[in-house]
Design a binder for these strands. Structure first.
Lengths: 349, 349
DNA sequence: ATGTTGATCCAAACCGGTTTGGTCGGTACA
DNA sequence: TGTACCGACCAAACCGGTTTGGATCAACAT
């Protein structure tokens, strides 16, 4: 059922039928309703491809999924994607997804997507500190919104969860539990969020008047194994840190394993807090305390920001910073009674 | 840079340029190379929207993500999506994703997708025993491939992992470890794969000459909580089953929790095997033995099957059954020395 | 000299919509 | 009575490609 068939059927011109369906006032009300009823009855659906060709807009937005091993872990992305997809669908936009490993492939996939003109905008997820995708999109002046911030002087629309605030709060929580020797397994500095979280940790320690021993601040990749190794080093320190903050849950899981392997109990001897609230965080032993991001809502907001961007809202007005929620679980407990460290100095003297 | 501009630039007609680029033999070799070079040099890219309108093919395939809470767990879907996406991309097809909760929404999303004609085919994931999506697609004669089988007499293309074989093997593995009282936390019967897995369990037990106590076979929803409750019931039985097979890892995680709560040790007092090898399976305590599916390969194959389907390969030749891999982990150990059951009957007599 | 054939190239139609720039008849106003 | 204006409708152009059905011309055959 196409427009020509429908208009023949009604004894009207294509023009009039088209304009009737689109609610133009230069079609009489009577005709308008007659056309609409017929369209409804005959199940007429305008061909979006033809509309796209005419309007120059694809009625779709793109999303390149970084599919590298690990990093955030997949549940993160799918929740984001779902949230964004539903929001866009409500406005009649489809979601076009392309999967590529971070790096050249990813950039090529993005390039292909925008030069094919099959999408009107793209959503960039898991931004990195210095993100070539952001450069590409800004250079080409292609509409986009990013999940996360990068080092980029030009203003662009983003939605991020405040890593500084999150780790400030996580650190403060530990301090309130009586911890003083708090260590950090940070992420690699090329990840923007890793830098922010480290800053939050440092700020909270400073605010509480606590010194950070240089040994307490280590960097590790976003894998379980890296978390395991980093934690082993931290646990071996004397005096031993009583709490470890991990850049992500993935690292934290490795950290828990290292604690168990050392014959210690997480949440009792050493407290651990992660970030992301991955599904696995609730099944570790002990369950992992963590900072949670409202992923579906983040996705939905990203979708809506994309719509606003396409509607012409300036980038500078589309920058939001959300707050993570602390999810208390058994891995974060009160600081152990701290006799060892008090005695040690006197023994040395 | 559109075709008209390019042809003006070359002093040729649109027709000739188009045919040159598409390699038609009625353009002289000299012209053909000249056109191709110019196109390359000027960065000409045909507008896929215009091509789609003309050819009637959208050069995209669709995928409706069921986003209901739980069931398989998200990592499953994302891996599948990635695998399929890469395969399709290699053939120039894009992947259009729409997220909807299973049920009416999902069907509506699917309907919208195919009647909008923005996709040439769809991939159906997580099929259910009696799947309305399959009915819809077969009724409309719309090309699709399904991940999983359903009760449907008409032939259609599918790729499934053999649940019968998987649980037959899991059961046999437990029998070889010395287990005799093996229980099953099955899935709801409307899930096709749950039925298959139950059959595999029953077949292996029968083949080993072991009777299945009716109490050992329970059904539970695909959630951690349901697995927890079901396991509690099983653990309370006397004589107690020494092994529990769970329809999915999600249930198995709940099962492990119930075992721990009863003061028992999984893998020692009661062995547990799950299915899916979700990421969290390796961090439970003890780590969860499970049947793993090669998700990225499954996705890739689904993508290729879709291409073959569109190329006209008949449905009956596009039906594949793959085999899951057993991932041994500490939750499945040898059967405990079984003195209690031997004595109990003598006491009763 | 007149067809025939094959190699090249092209104008126009087409895909299915939307937009432009009208026409046509009737009413309002000078 | 002439004309300005308005409401309702429509033919044709357009979006950017591909396909159809020629046109042109040189070489070759009759």
């Amino acid at each position: 059922m196409d427009l020509k068939t429908l208009s023949n059927h009604l004894g009207l011109s294509k023009t009039t039928v088209s304009r009737a369906l689109n609610g133009y006032p230069d079609v009489s009300l009577a005709t308008r309703t007659r056309v609409r009823e017929a369209a409804e009855r005959l199940g007429y659906r305008p061909n979006p491809v033809a509309q796209a060709l005419q309007s120059g807009r694809a009625q779709a937005i793109g999303l390149v999924l970084p599919t590298g091993p690990g990093e955030f872990g997949d549940p993160f992305l799918l929740a984001l994607l779902t949230g964004a997809g539903k929001e866009l669908q409500a406005d009649g936009l489809d979601l076009m997804v392309s999967a590529a490993a971070p790096g050249d492939d990813e950039l090529a996939a993005l390039d292909r997507m925008i030069s094919k003109r099959r999408v009107d905008g793209v959503i960039v997820v898991r931004t990195r500190a210095d993100d070539p995708r952001i450069h590409l999109l800004l250079d080409r002046d292609f509409p986009f919104v990013a999940q996360g911030r990068t080092r980029e002087p030009r203003p662009y629309p983003f939605l991020d969860v405040d890593g500084v605030e999150a780790f400030e709060r996580a650190t403060t929580t530990l301090i309130e539990l009586g911890h003083r020797r708090i260590a950090l397994i940070g992420g690699e500095p090329h990840l923007a969020y890793a830098t922010h979280r480290r800053q939050g940790y440092e700020a909270a320690m400073a605010a509480a008047g606590l010194r950070i021993d240089p040994d307490w601040r280590v960097e590790a990749r976003q894998t379980r194994e890296a978390g395991f190794e980093a934690a082993k080093t931290l646990i071996a320190l004397r005096p031993r840190p009583t709490a470890i903050l991990c850049n992500t849950d993935t690292q934290a899981v490795g950290c828990l394993a290292a604690i168990a392997e050392a014959g210690l109990t997480a949440g009792v001897d050493v407290s651990v807090i992660g970030h992301d609230d991955l599904p696995l965080a609730s099944v570790t032993s002990p369950p992992l305390a963590t900072m949670a991001q409202p992923l579906p809502e983040l996705g939905a907001r990203l979708g809506r920001m994309m719509l606003q961007r396409l509607a012409g809202k300036p980038a500078s007005e589309l920058q939001e910073l959300w707050t993570a929620a602390y999810v208390p679980r058994a891995s974060a407990g009160p600081a152990p009674p701290d006799d060892r460290t008090r005695r040690q100095p006197s023994q040395i003297r």
